[in-house]
Design a binder for these strands. Structure first.
Lengths: 145, 145
DNA sequence: TCCTAATTGGATATTGACATCCAATTTACC
DNA sequence: GGTAAATTGGATGTCAATATCCAATTAGGA
C-alpha cells in the first residue's frame, strides 16, 4: 500500500530529525536506517529536489532538514516522494461524473483523504517525542545509538 | 496508492452486484467497466480463485457473485486481489521492536487500519443504493445502461 | 454427436519500481 | 593549489505489475 521508497524516505527523515539541526552523510543515514546506500542516495536526492532536505557537498557536508521537525509533517515527506493518489475525477473518464464522484470512487477517495489527514496532522517532532518503548530506527530500548 | 488491478476488480464487482444474481460474460464486464478485456479476464480469474466470484463455462455462462451484494464488502474484494499491507512487525527487522511498533510505524499502520475499517464497513449493496447523481460505471444520469 | 459459447492457462511484451555502480562535480581544509 | 570528502547524474540491471494473445478446455443446446 505504501511504497518501499516512501518507507525509506520516512526512515531517513526520522533519523535526520533526531539529529537535527546537524547534517549527516548518505552513508550514515543508510546505515542507521538499514537501507541500501546506493538506493538511499537516490531517495535523498528526491527529498532535496522537493525541498524537504538540503544537501551540502564536500568535507563536513551531508544532508539536513530544511525545516525544524516541528514544522515537518509525515505528509510533507510522503508528498515529496509519491503523493497520495487522491481520486479527483472519474477514473473511467465518464463525462457526467466529472467532479461528482460516483458512490464507489467517493468512498475510495474518502479513505485516501483519511490517510492524508492522518499524515498531515503528525509532525516529525511528535514522532520523536512519542513515549514509546520502541525508539524509531534504534535497535536498543532507549535513545542510545 | 490503490493499484490498478484493485480498481478494475471493484468495477467488475460493482457491475456484477448491479446485475446480481445474474451472470455476465467477461466481455460484457470488460465493456461495461472500460477495462481491457484480456486483462479483465485475468482479474476475474483471481476473484474466482478467492471465491468472490464463481464462473460458469459454456453457452449462457459467465461470471457471477458468490454472495449477495449485502454480504460482500469492499474489503472482501480488495483482500482478494491485493490485501492492505498492514505493518505487523518492525520493517527494519529490529528484534526489540517485535510486536510493539515504533512511533513511526505505529502511525503508518494506524492509517492503514483506518482504510481497512472503512472498506470493511461498506457493502456492495450500500454502494449501489447510494443516492448519488453519478451512477457507478454508468455514463448517463440514472440507472439506464 | 457436433457446433458454438465461454472460461482457463500459458507464453509473451511493456513499463515502472527498486537497486547498483561509477565517473564527474563541488567543497572544505591544509 | 592540491587532496580528500561528499553529493550528483547517468547508465545499467532486475523484477513485479500491467497488458495482450491464443490454444486448450468445458459446457449447453440442436
Amino acid at each position: 500500500m505504501l511504497s518501499q521508497t516512501v518507507e525509506y524516505a520516512l526512515r531517513a527523515v526520522v533519523y535526520l530529525a533526531d539529529q537535527s539541526p546537524n547534517a549527516r552523510t548518505t552513508s550514515q543515514i543508510a546505515e542507521a536506517t538499514h537501507v541500501p546506500p546506493a538506493y538511499m542516495s537516490k531517495v535523498l536526492q528526491g527529498l532535496c529536489r522537493a525541498k524537504v532536505l538540503r544537501s551540502q557537498r564536500g568535507i563536513g557536508g551531508g544532508m539536513s532538514l530544511v525545516n525544524a521537525p516541528e514544522e515537518l509533517t509525515i505528509l510533507d515527506v510522503v508528498n515529496a516522494v509519491e503523493p497520495i493518489g487522491r481520486i479527483e475525477s472519474c477514473p473511467l473518464g465518464l463525462k457526467v461524473h466529472g467532479v461528482h464522484l460516483c458512490a464507489l470512487h467517493r468512498r475510495l477517495d474518502n479513505a485516501l483523504a483519511a490517510v492524508e489527514d492522518a499524515f498531515r496532522s503528525t509532525t516529525l517532532a511528535e514522532v520523536l517525542a512519542d513515549p514509546n518503548p520502541s525508539v524509531p530506527l534504534c535497535d536498543l530500548p532507549g535513545r542510545s545509538t
